[in-house]
Each structure stands twice: as C-alpha cells, then as structure tokens.
Amino acid sequence: MDVRTDEIAEQIYRVSVFVPHAGGGAGFTFNHFLIAGDEPLLFHCGLRKMFPIVSGAIRAIMPTDRIRWLSFGHFEADECGSMNDWLAAAPHAEIMHGVMGCRISIADMADRAPRSLANGEVVDIGGKRIRYIDTPHVPHGWDAGVIYEEVTKTLFCGDLFARLGDGPALTESDIVEPAMIAEDFFNLTSLGPTTAPNIRGLAALKPKTLAIMHGSSFSGDAEGAIHSLADHFEARLRMALR
C-alpha cells in the first residue's frame, strides 16, 4: 500500500493510503485529514488494520498524543474502525460527532464518551473553526454528517465524490463524472427525495476546497461541483420513479 501525505489547505494535511487491489482492481484511496489547530483534529480515524501506517504518517507531522479531537462522517469501519486505537494513542482526545451517531453507535463502541454536536454547532479548535452539519442518509447512514472548516473554507465531504483509482492529492479536474462511475460500481448512495436537497444545501457554504475521503481533494468551482452532483442524483431518482 502506498502512503502519501500532502498539505491541501493551510495546516490541513491529507494522509492517503492507496490500495491497488480494491475497487475491482482499479484501486481505491482511503484518506485521513489532520487539521492542525491548537487542538488538532483528525477527520477519519481509518480502518483498524491501517492504524500502524496512518499513525506513522501522522507522527511525521506531530506527536499523536497531541491530537485533541477525532471525528468522521458516519459509523463505518473505514471511517472509525481504529477510533479506540487513536483514543489510546492520544490520551486527551475526544470523539466529536452528531447526536444521532453518538446515540446509536459511538457512545457504546468507543472507549471514552464522545462529545455530541448539534446540527450547525461550531467548535473552535484554536486557529480553526469546525462546523458540524447533519446529512442523514447522504450518502448513506442515518447518522451521516460532514464538517466544514470555516477559516480555510474546507468542506470535508466524507464519502461524497468517492471515485475509483488513484490521483493527485489536489485537483481542479472534473470530480463529478468519476464519482458517478464509482456510484455505478459501488451503488453506495441512498437515493431518495432528500438526497439531492441535502447535497445541494452544502453548496451554500461556498467552500474553496473539498476534502474527499476516496479520491483527490478538489480546488476549483466547489459550489458548482456540489450542485452538479446533486443534479445527477436528482435525475437518477426521476428515472427510478418512472
């Protein structure tokens, strides 16, 4: 597995693990994002079996025991499988997540009690401000949510815009068409009447950078890319209802 670290926005580091045999042989990236505020936050703890290589990459940036906050999009192995390893490595760390995620999974599965965040709640981590946003069932899981870093205007998209293959850490190329190809392969999105509106609502944030869990992060017309993704799912729902 190839592990690569890049700074995609000011003091926001993407630790990417490329698994070449995943995705039907096309390969698949698993990305973890370190937000280096005064109280550093790791978004996506990662798979439990990847903890040694991901924590090693994080240690190259800062000691792991400095991490104060852990978060992720929803309760799933590739997002939080190693959360208890991180809680052990960072004795002062807390998990922060939405109320639903904490109630249905995290409070029981985590070795320390999490901090529950209301929709729209902002946490100042010193030099960076993290806004939590509920996105139930988008792209999947009723506990799903994203975070938005207000200072750098970086939206951490979770599984939205997931794509197959590898690529640069940061791109201005189209991210929507590759995401729809991956959608056809994985069938990962919960398609319903709230799918497109929930995605479209994220465009109102007017982000500058999209930090994507599976694929290159994006710097370009992020607002347009979000609307385009919503348009695709809106069209797919209309087709499904015919």
Rank of each mutant, 00 (worst) to 15 (best):
I106N: 00
K128G: 01
A222L: 11
H232K: 14
M180T: 01
G127V: 10
I212W: 00
P197H: 07
M213E: 12
P91R: 06
G98H: 00
F43Q: 04
L155M: 08
P91D: 12
D108E: 15
R238E: 14
A77S: 13
H137K: 00
L170G: 03
L170A: 05
W86A: 05
I199E: 02
F28W: 14
A118T: 14
M239G: 14
E121K: 05
K208I: 11
W69G: 02
A179I: 09
I95R: 04
R48A: 14
G56Y: 10
I133G: 02
D184F: 11
N198H: 08
A26E: 06
I53M: 13
K208C: 12
F43A: 01
D159C: 00
A60S: 15
N198G: 08
P63K: 03
M96S: 11
I12A: 01
S116G: 09
E79V: 06
P139F: 03
M180V: 05
L210H: 05
Q11S: 15
I125H: 10
G126R: 02
P136Y: 13
S16Q: 09
H74F: 09
I106L: 13
A90K: 05
I106E: 10
A93K: 04
W142D: 15
M213F: 15
N31Y: 10
A107C: 15
K128I: 02
